[in-house]
Computed example of a mutant assay.
Amino acid sequence: MQAFVYKSLRKADTYVYLAGHDDFGRIPVPVRGELGELRFVLEVALDPGRRLAREDADVVRANLVAHGFHLQMPPRPDFDPLTEDWGTDA
């Protein structure tokens, strides 16, 4: 399965995988509005066993089949439990 990857020029580190080249009609209008302009960056074969840097290729393939697109959001900052207020101070 081929996927076409586009970078959001409005949202940093946000990418959209599409099942069809320039098939932006598959992206829901509210999501498309949040992403702003999209720039093509990569065509990738999502064959079984393929590994991706930040996403599970099986999940990406499933979303492409079911919805025609997959949205890759920026990675979350590492959660450090020592920085949270646990409410235990007097």
Rank of each mutant, 00 (worst) to 15 (best):
F69A: 02
G87T: 09
L52N: 07
R76A: 14
L18G: 06
A3C: 15
G68T: 09
G68K: 07
V29L: 12
E37R: 13
A66K: 13
H70N: 10
V60N: 04
V29Q: 14
R50P: 00
V29W: 07
S8V: 11
D78W: 08
A53N: 03
T83I: 11
Y15T: 05
M1V: 11
R10C: 01
F40Q: 03
A53W: 03
P28I: 07
M1Y: 15
E34Y: 04
E34P: 00
T14K: 04
D56H: 08
D47M: 08
E84S: 09
V16I: 12
P28D: 08
V31S: 05
L46K: 05
L64A: 01
F69G: 01
L71K: 08
E84F: 15
E55K: 03
N63H: 14
Y15F: 13
V31I: 15
K7A: 10
G36T: 01
F69S: 00
Y6L: 00
A19C: 04
L52H: 06
L46T: 02
R50Y: 01
H21Y: 13
V5I: 14
W86R: 09
A3K: 12
R54T: 02
D47G: 00
M73H: 08
F79M: 09
P74F: 08
T88H: 10
D56C: 01
A45F: 08
L64T: 00
R61I: 00
R76P: 02
R26S: 13
R39N: 02
L18R: 07
P75Y: 01
E84L: 15
G87C: 11
V41C: 07
A90K: 05
P81N: 06
A53L: 14
